[in-house]
């Protein structure tokens, strides 16, 4: 019994640690890539770590004094790390018994909710605009995420995340799962807050939107949350919809998964570089179309393809 608990705890710590430590590194790699595409030098790969360290030591400026407001950044980061414990990274999800794909959808939105509430609480009108946009982005993207996961659940006949991944690994590529994977990939673009969907932050318009009043350690944690979120979502994508090849050995599967996630994020970064920002309406229309097309994946799933 205690051995099981220890194993779960160890796996959970592993997942959390991987996401926590690798996400700034991935962000650094992506920045480097973007700079290369821009024909710039770009910052060092470890710049995100350095930025974070510096921010953590800076003065904390608060426009509102409320305990809930104070802990919001830590809570946001924790929610993304929690998400990391209910998705697989190489092995089975550590807390598989605690949450299934519905849990994933809802836990995934928690960080966004906290960000939005913090934005409104900060009292800045720019933050409010950003919060409103973040909410609309959530409204557009979350259905896409839900549809893709439901397709997986329909194919595998279970809502368990591990169950879907196992089914996909065992049965090889199918049309419906591939379509769903593509749709989820398109959603990752917005979940990661990258162009053309960085509408909520939109530094040039609303000065970072929800983050305009965040500074010092608070800003660092919110940034970290975003980085972790993009990593977790790409991990979810590759583990559920592109789990092949699978060896069954954690030491081999985990690095592979992380590598595949990096590929996904590289693609995301490339899209980011070559696109201008969309307007809210355009983004919503785009994701509406994506969601409707991903219903095609569901149709395929129903007929068993």
């Amino acid at each position: 019994m205690s051995a099981t608990i220890l194993k779960v705890a160890a796996l959970a710590i592993l997942n959390v640690a991987l996401v926590l430590l690798l996400s700034p590194l991935y962000e650094g790699l992506l920045r480097k890539l973007k700079a290369t595409l821009h024909s710039r030098m770009g910052p060092p790969v470890f710049q995100p770590f350095l930025d974070t360290l510096k921010l953590l030591g800076k003065e904390d400026l608060l426009t509102v004094q409320h305990p809930a407001y104070a802990v919001a950044p830590a809570a946001a980061l924790a929610s993304v790390l929690l998400l990391a414990t209910i998705i697989p990274i190489g092995g089975a999800p550590p807390l598989a018994f605690a949450g299934d794909v519905i849990g994933v959808v809802y836990v995934a939105s928690m960080s966004a909710v906290l960000l939005i509430l913090t934005a409104f609480a900060s009292g800045s009108p720019y933050a409010a605009v950003g919060g409103s946009r973040e909410m609309m982005s959530l409204l557009s993207v979350e259905p896409v995420v839900a549809v893709t996961l439901v397709v997986g659940a329909m194919k595998a006949g279970t809502l368990s995340v591990a169950g879907i991944a196992d089914w996909n690994a065992a049965h090889g590529p199918t049309i419906s799962m591939t379509l769903a994977g593509v749709a989820l990939f398109l959603a990752v673009q917005a979940q990661a807050g990258k162009l053309p969907f960085d509408i909520p932050e939109a530094d040039q318009e609303v000065m970072g939107g929800p983050l305009v009043e965040q500074s010092g350690p608070r800003l660092a944690l919110f940034r970290w949350t975003m980085w972790a979120r993009q990593l977790v979502f790409s991990l979810l994508l590759v583990e559920l919809f592109f789990p092949w090849p699978r060896t069954g050995v954690l030491a081999a599967d985990a690095p592979l998964a992380l590598l595949k996630a990096l590929v996904v994020l590289v693609l995301v970064a490339v899209v980011d570089v070559v696109n201008p920002r969309l307007k809210v309406e355009q983004a919503m229309g785009y994701y509406l179309r994506v969601a409707l097309s991903s219903l095609a994946a569901m149709a395929f799933a129903v007929v068993g393809m």
């Binding site: 959970a12 426009t63 830590a74 790390l81 800045s124």
Partner: peptide
């Protein structure tokens, strides 16, 4: 788990630097 992670993130990261907090007006 959420609580553990949250406390860890708050204590271990957000307040790790032991920085000063200051009340400021909204920046317009």
């Amino acid at each position: 788990v959420l609580l553990i992670l949250g406390i860890a993130a708050y204590v271990g990261l957000q307040r790790a630097g032991g920085v000063v907090t200051r009340r400021v007006p909204v920046w317009a």
